[in-house]
Nucleic acid binder design. Sequence first.
DNA 1: GGCTTTTCTTAGTCCAAAGCTAGGGAAACC
DNA 2: GGTTTCCCTAGCTTTGGACTAAGAAAAGCC
Lengths: 151, 151
Amino acid sequence: MKLSTRARYAIRVLLDIAARRDEDRPIQLNDVAERTGISRRYLDQIVMPLKSAGLLIGTKGRHGGYQLAKAPEAIYLLDIVEATIGPVNLVECVQSPQTCERSDECPARLLYRLLSASMRTTLTDYTLKDLGTKDVLAQMKQKVEGLEAAL
Amino acid sequence: MKLSTRARYAIRVLLDIAARRDEDRPIQLNDVAERTGISRRYLDQIVMPLKSAGLLIGTKGRHGGYQLAKAPEAIYLLDIVEATIGPVNLVECVQSPQTCERSDECPARLLYRLLSASMRTTLTDYTLKDLGTKDVLAQMKQKVEGLEAAL
DNA sequence: GGCTTTTCTTAGTCCAAAGCTAGGGAAACC
DNA sequence: GGTTTCCCTAGCTTTGGACTAAGAAAAGCC
């Protein structure tokens, strides 16, 4: 039940590109690779679905690279994650009830729906910009520590 | 990012055993296998960690089987899940910060902590009994549909 | 126009973990 | 003593994740 490294890398890459957005020119993958510590070749694969999903714009040729396709405050974390690993749900039956014949009456499925839905909700509560905004992060930390303390 | 079938089976098995608790005698794995559709051999493995975790009690010999070690309202879903697949967290660094050198200042880690903590919170909000209680399930359904509608 | 720099696309390798099967031991009961 | 059950360890098979590699295609520069 782990989040794949691809998804985590995708977030890391977009954070890197977003942080350099003021320079207003394409960021090259070679640079991103160096800063993030992700292999250049692997980066190609991380970036591909982000481009297909309309989160990044690629420019070829000399001085080419990648730029955000939208403002960071318009990029929800759910967009990033779902672009790289597909629909967010903990069990297949959440999305496709027909994969299990008794999904109608299954109490566990309700639980899986709840878990999945609240993950998705959290991921739409925050944007790429939020992860670079001190205030939001501080407030997020409060929330986390509250939850962790209650366990 | 899927919940393993072992965890789902564990919940299914405990629901099956809990549903037959009024008979007040050990439930045999052969019967459980037949009702749940889980292979008998595999069931052995599902049940083992549940016993180690103190959720089930096994009785050997003729008319042996398994019984709940506690009342269903005392068995939290988190207990079941963590007994079978270990600590619930979406990224390793949530539990072990030292696995990533920049985990102190990593904004993404905060997100992963939040996601993990809210999963754990949800799983401690409900018990084995709740999954068999109509009222609770109805109220859960309300909650899920609210969340799903907002997405 | 040709050379360089970059993105872009596809294919394939490697490894770990999940999912499941199998064999036989150990206790309890009749 | 034999049957029934749990109990434990070992292994097999498949899947998916993580990553590497090779080169095509496009854009810019001289």
